[in-house]
Amino acid sequence: MKRLMTSKGLFGGTTLAVLAILVLLPLVLPSATLATEIVIFAMAALACNLLLGYGGLLSFGQGLFFGAGSYLSALAMIHGGVGLVTALVIAIVAGALIATFVGMLSIRRTGIYFVMLTLAFSQTGYFLAYTLSKWTGGDNGLLDVPRPGLSLFGVDLVDLKGAHAYYVFVALIFMAVYVGARRVIDSPFGSTLVAIRENESRASAVGFDTRHFKMLAFTLSGAVTALAGALYGMLINYVPLDNIAMAMSENIVIMTVIGGTGSLLGSLLGAGTLVLMGEILSSIWPRWPLLLGVLLILIVVFLRGGVWGGVESLIGRMTRKDEA
């Protein structure tokens, strides 16, 4: 209950903070491309957080949706000649459909079985992409992914070739997704998800069809992750096989947890931390994932609330000092 109260109380504050971060990112960072990357991964982490932080479902297969979104939108643009909006809609619908399929087979299993099933299904996607190399390029990845401009009903509105223009476009989508997710969490649906996280059998005894709620959350998460995947393909004009590999699922989970689960702002912080860490450290030392491994262990042993949890408790400590 207390948790709900704080998240409600912070509602206006966190939304403003997200907005501020989105505005500051391209100004502070050396390139708009890097800022775009952070925002795209923040979207994927947010979708994962919706499941983990609110529904208590740890999906280790988010890479499947991310990769499927990149591949399918890219293929639709290359072979079908579709525009930006259609490509993104294709990714969203595909992500939702794949998530529905995976969810049907795995959502009735709880806890660690769910984690293992989602991981195994994401591996299916990986080997599918690897096997269908005629379409996906296999190990070499899918090259020459276009980034069409925004057009509606045949009228070209905005050209997105420039890094800054594309950043603004992605940031606007992120803001829309963020506000949408916020609304979902504050709705009765969101409260039910939290109830399921806290005690599934009790939620079910009260009369909620918990499987149905979890399925909905999973589908939503798949759709948003696939959207992020599609935007990423357009950002780097390329879909590497890594987009659908286990490492992608792993990274999305790491960003979510580093940022702090149960806080949507945390996802942005988590994505920023991991992307920047990779950007800075990989140029200094290619074996930087070793440090990431150490960091993960330290976070679990010493800082379990994630970055945002750490900031929150720091704020809490400071205000308590003021009162005293």
Binding site: L52, L58, F60, G111, I112, V115, E250, V253, I254, V257, T261, R287, P289, L290, L292, G293, V294, L295, L296, I297, I299, V300, V301, R304
Partner: peptide, 24 residues
């Protein structure tokens, strides 16, 4: 040290160990 924590944390720590093993 982490038995008493939820599975999520077991996964994070062992993912960390896997990364350390791979990079080493």
């Amino acid at each position: 040290r982490i038995y008493h924590l939820p599975h999520t944390f077991h996964i994070l720590v062992t993912v960390g160990v896997a990364l350390i093993l791979q990079e080493s």
